Structure formats: C-alpha cells, structure tokens
Simulated assay, not measured.
Amino acid sequence: MSFFQGKQKRSVAETAITVSAHTKLSVSKRVDVDTQIVEYEEDTDSGMIAIVSRANTEDYSHRNKKGLVMVFPRDIKSGTYPAKDPQFENIYYFETATIPGYTKSIQYNAVNGSVIIDVVENTAKSLIYKITLDIKVVDDKTNEELNIVGKKDFRAFFEPL
C-alpha cells in the first residue's frame, strides 16, 4: 500500500533504508498494542513521510490486524501539536474485521488530543523521532470513539548505494 499515490518516493535503487520502531499504545475498549512492525514511506517531492505501525500481522486468520498511521513532514520540529494540526496530513488507528471470504478495514481518524514529537536526529543518514500520543479517534461511519495513549520510538537509517 502506498501512502503517496502518484507521487515520487525515495528510490530504493538510490538508497538502502533500515527502519525500526517500537510502538506501545493503550487503546480504550481494546487490549494494548505493542509492536515493532513498522513501515516507512517518504515522498521526496512534498517532504511528507508515512510511519505505519502494525500489530498482529502474523495472525493466520487475518482477522485481528490493527495499527497506527501517521503522515507528517519529515522536517517537523520538536514540540507539542494538536492531533488536528495542519502539519499532520493524517493520523488514524485502524483495525480489520472479517467473516469468511470478506475482510473490512475500519479507520478511526484523530479528532482531538495532542502529539508530542521529539526530533532526536534528522540528517541525510538518519531520522530518529520519539513520539508521545494522547488522542481521541473516531470511526466516521459509526461514530465509535476510542482514546489512545502511547509512545513510539522510531528510527530510520539511510545508506546510499
């Protein structure tokens, strides 16, 4: 899945990327999310990045996937931001729901709360963020609300080929 449809991404042929992260979230009405599974995508034209943490990807039934998507500028400054700050192109929590032969993704969009970004390092060779979340997310179709409190330690390292 590409978060930057029709846009340029960092070319894999140009740069090798090593990504690691640890995400721990307490989600109301759900069990805690604790994962090191992460996806990173960058749009070099806009400077936007997508950091996607996923849990339960190894679940053979494909019924329990969940995660957090954050899309924001790579050059974001350290600070405390409202969850709906215009710098965040997107922040949402997702889950999958299934019945045999059908899988549905449920998206809960951030509606309020705060996001603390600590930019530890942002260079051509590395990108390190420590992120703290205290947000409310809502499923626009059902109006179900969830509160999410947690932390993400994200690290990406770039090596020209």
Rank of each mutant, 00 (worst) to 15 (best):
144 E>V: 06
78 S>W: 00
120 V>D: 08
148 I>W: 03
156 A>E: 01
110 A>H: 02
91 I>Q: 05
12 V>G: 13
33 V>D: 08
41 E>G: 09
34 D>E: 06
10 R>V: 12
120 V>K: 11
156 A>N: 03
33 V>P: 08
1 M>E: 09
25 L>P: 08
122 N>V: 00
94 F>S: 13
102 Y>I: 11
104 K>F: 07
52 V>E: 09
149 V>W: 00
139 D>R: 06
85 D>H: 08
44 T>G: 11
146 L>F: 04
53 S>L: 00
2 S>Y: 01
66 K>V: 08
125 K>T: 14
95 E>H: 05
24 K>T: 15
139 D>M: 01
13 A>E: 00
137 V>L: 02
133 L>A: 15
153 D>R: 07
160 P>R: 09
141 K>R: 09
72 F>R: 07
117 I>M: 02
125 K>E: 14
69 V>C: 08
102 Y>C: 13
57 T>P: 07
13 A>V: 04
53 S>P: 03
145 E>K: 08
32 D>L: 03
6 G>I: 00
33 V>E: 06
3 F>Q: 11
57 T>H: 09
61 S>T: 05
51 I>W: 00
90 N>P: 13
2 S>L: 02
50 A>T: 04
17 I>R: 11
59 D>H: 02
144 E>K: 12
25 L>D: 06
148 I>H: 00
24 K>D: 15
38 V>R: 08
86 P>D: 10
67 G>D: 02
158 F>E: 02
148 I>M: 01
132 T>G: 12
120 V>E: 07
129 Y>S: 09
65 K>V: 11
9 K>T: 15
104 K>D: 11
160 P>E: 09
